[in-house]
Each structure stands twice: as C-alpha cells, then as structure tokens.
Design a protein around this nucleic acid. Structure first.
Length: 211
DNA sequence: AGCCAGGCTACCG
DNA sequence: CGGTAGCATGGC
C-alpha cells in the first residue's frame, strides 16, 4: 500500500529533532553513548552483543533503568558473550534488577547468549531470532536493525501511536505487528540508516509528547 | 500514590 | 485467531 505520509513524517521529525545516533553503546564515552551521524556501529562483536542485551532488557522498561543494569553487568564483567554464561546466576540477577522482570530476563539473556555464541559472527535471520525463548518481533527487529544493520523496520507502542495520530490506521481495527511494519517498509527506501533514524525519532518524540 | 516504561509468554475462550 | 494476567523495578 502506498502512502506518501510515511516519508513526509520522517522529514518532519528529522528536521525537528535531528540525527539520534542510535543504538547507544557504553563503549562510546561522549554523548552518553549516542553517535549521531555515525552509522558504522557496532564495530566489534562485543558491541553487537551489548546492543542485543539492551534490546532484551528494555522490553517494557524505560531505557534509564536499562542503563543501570548495563552498567552493573559491565562492573561484574558479564556484559560479554564469553563470560556471561560463566557468571553466577544470582550475580547476574542482582545486576539486571533495575531493569525489572529480572527472573524472566535472566532466562532470556541465557537463551540468547547461547544462540549468539553459536552464530560465530554470522548474521541471524528473523525466524531464528523469533525461535529463541524471550525474543518477540520487536526485539528481533531491533537486533537486526541496530546490531546487524539490516533494513528491517521496528514497530512498538510509539510507532502505533504515531500512525494513529496521523490517521494512517484506525483505533478500532486490530492491526498486527507485521501489517504496521509493512506500511513503513512499503513506503521507504530499503536503507538501514534511514530505518535506524526513523525508529529512534519515533521513540524520542513519543517520549517528549505527552503520551 | 498511582501509572507507566523502547514486550513476551502462557493460557484462555 | 484475539484477549489478557503475570512478570518487577525506578521515575515522575
């Protein structure tokens, strides 16, 4: 389905807020980890792993809380695919506690880390990610878009609100994740930089503007 | 003092 | 299939 509004909305948001430099990384000391206008990240497999961990920890959780958890993981040397599985369960859970749901998220991180190690640097496909316990569509797509620079659009609560507000979808009709994703991908160039920027802008505006 | 956050699973009808 | 309880913490 064609819809001119999709690319127009992007221009409007970009002009207002500028490049966002997602996904933030603890290895970048400036700008709180953000890297506007720099699309080379992740540089290392370690940074790639950190993005995936963040994507899981931020499920239904504010990024502020995730930052604490990531800092804690780093302090106990567990923010690393080679050491994570060797770290005591209680230590990990204590570290990720600020991100909430720590029992569930611990299980999710274990399942994901095993998978990540089995990849040996190969890029995963969406179905593989969705097959992992604890990885749903948004987390899978965040990982593909930001950890692997794949042009896959991420849909979340803010994305739906943006479409509702602009009357591209209606409140009543039940719109699936895949349907919304298709609206964006049908109307944008297949460009991971554009997708990374667009989704970041959606979240940023979603936060700023009331609800 | 509630309500909400960059969701997902399990289980129900 | 669609709908929803449960998961947990910190910020506002």
């Amino acid at each position: 389905m064609k819809n001119k509004l999709i690319s127009k909305l992007y221009s409007t948001l970009y002009e207002e807020y500028g490049p966002q430099g997602w996904w933030p990384l603890s290895t970048i000391k400036t700008n709180n980890g953000y890297h506007p206008n720099n699309y080379k990240y992740p540089v290392t497999n370690q940074e790639r792993f950190e993005i995936c961990v963040g994507a899981i920890l931020t499920q239904n959780t504010s990024w502020k809380n995730v930052e604490k958890a990531i800092t804690n993981l780093k302090e106990i040397n567990a923010l690393c695919m080679l050491y994570f599985l060797d770290t005591l369960e209680v230590k990990i859970k204590k570290a990720i506690r600020p991100a909430g749901y720590f029992n569930q998220k611990y299980k999710k991180l274990v399942a994901f880390t095993k998978f990540f190690l089995s990849l040996k640097k190969r890029t995963p496909i969406r179905e593989e990610l969705l097959g992992i316990w604890g990885i749903g569509p948004e987390t899978a797509d965040s990982i593909l878009l930001y950890a692997y620079n794949q042009p896959i659009f991420v849909v979340d609560a803010y994305t739906r609100k943006l479409l509702l507000k602009n009357k591209i979808i209606k409140e009543k009709e039940k719109v699936s994740y895949d349907y919304i994703q298709k609206i964006f991908m049908d109307n944008l160039k297949r460009d991971y930089k554009l997708y990374q920027e667009y989704y970041a802008l959606i979240v940023v505006t979603g936060k700023v503007k009331n609800k």
